[in-house]
Nucleic acid binder design. Structure first.
Lengths: 176, 176
DNA sequence: ACAAACTTTCACAAATTACTGAAATTATTG
DNA sequence: CAATAATTTCAGTAATTTGTGAAAGTTTGT
């Protein structure tokens, strides 16, 4: 039987690994995990000690987490030092991440694709057809994804997923 | 005005950058982009020349792309060397990627979370409640995501997204 | 305004990841 | 089966990313 601390550590380490599979570095993901399961905000010192990482690293990782909109500074009354916490609601957290990834990855990609398709359209040569078609399909995919993202952004995710489930059951019933 | 080759190159370079923001390395993503917009399959030599990378690198990247299920070998009649192509349908391509990421990232995470929650449940101590609650929420999120993924897996994505759109419009109409 | 407490920055170091090229392996042809 | 063609592997190297710690900067209290 594991202790609470062992369970926490296992989760933090795993989350760190997952982070590095995404674009987020290990330390950043570990700090996020630590704050996420902490009942109360932690100071930079506590984070340093808990994860055995340097002061500078904690500072940089927190700055990034804050830039992603999933961590924030909190002032604890009568305390001089800063404390940090994360977004505690899982859905909101993933919505913030989605927003940031859209901005950093999807939007620039859509720009490149639109531009490319436009350039290819300006070339009269018929043997450009295949390239144009492929890029157009990719563009359609990303545009649809953005559409779905925007729907999720403005609606409560749970209700949407319930609707989706219902829609699927109806569809199955009709097509079978 | 850009030539076809300039447009292709811009797309390939951009896709390479995007790849490295995901877990995919730059070369792998570039090869994928090149094959994706190529009308016909390409040989390892052609890929080497086009992207100015080494033979070994091409070989390893192709192996990985094949492992992800988004590229495949094709035999060209009367040709001795191997040719390669990618999945050309965008939706299928992203479905393959989703399948692989689920296997590599989501499934192991769900296992860790289930295990962690179970361990915490075995600890009678009441001050474990917060940790358990947070991990349980994360677990719920991932389980719901898998559910959606499996729905998408077994249905035509376009039809689902249309249904989702309809569902949202209905919901908006009701709640407004 | 000074000192103490704390945070941020950044040059350098360490660690990790990606790439090369030549040797080894595998497949094809006469 | 020997020769040729093509592919794969992998040890070493290069490039990139991440982390450290000390100095610089900032804030707070007296």
């Amino acid at each position: 039987m594991e202790t609470v601390d062992q369970v926490k550590e296992k989760f933090i380490l795993h989350w760190g690994e997952m982070g590095s599979l995404w674009g987020i570095n290990r330390t950043m993901a570990q700090i996020h995990a630590l704050l996420f399961i902490s009942d109360k905000p932690l100071s930079a010192n506590e984070i340093m000690d808990e994860l055995a990482i340097s002061r500078g690293n904690v500072s940089m990782a927190l700055r990034e987490l804050i830039a992603w909109g999933i961590a924030s500074r909190v002032h604890v009354k009568g305390e001089r030092r800063e404390y940090y916490t994360t977004e505690k609601d899982v859905w909101t957290m993933f919505r913030m991440i989605a927003r940031e990834r859209k901005k950093r990855e999807v939007d620039p990609t859509i720009n490149v694709l639109r531009d490319s398709v436009a350039q290819l359209n300006a070339i009269p040569d018929a043997n450009v057809a295949y390239e144009r078609e492929q890029l157009q399909s990719l563009l359609n995919f990303f545009e649809t994804s953005v559409q779905v993202y925007e729907d999720l952004e403005t609606h409560n995710p749970n209700s949407i997923l319930k609707l989706l489930g219902t829609a699927l059951r109806v569809k199955s019933a009709i097509s079978s």
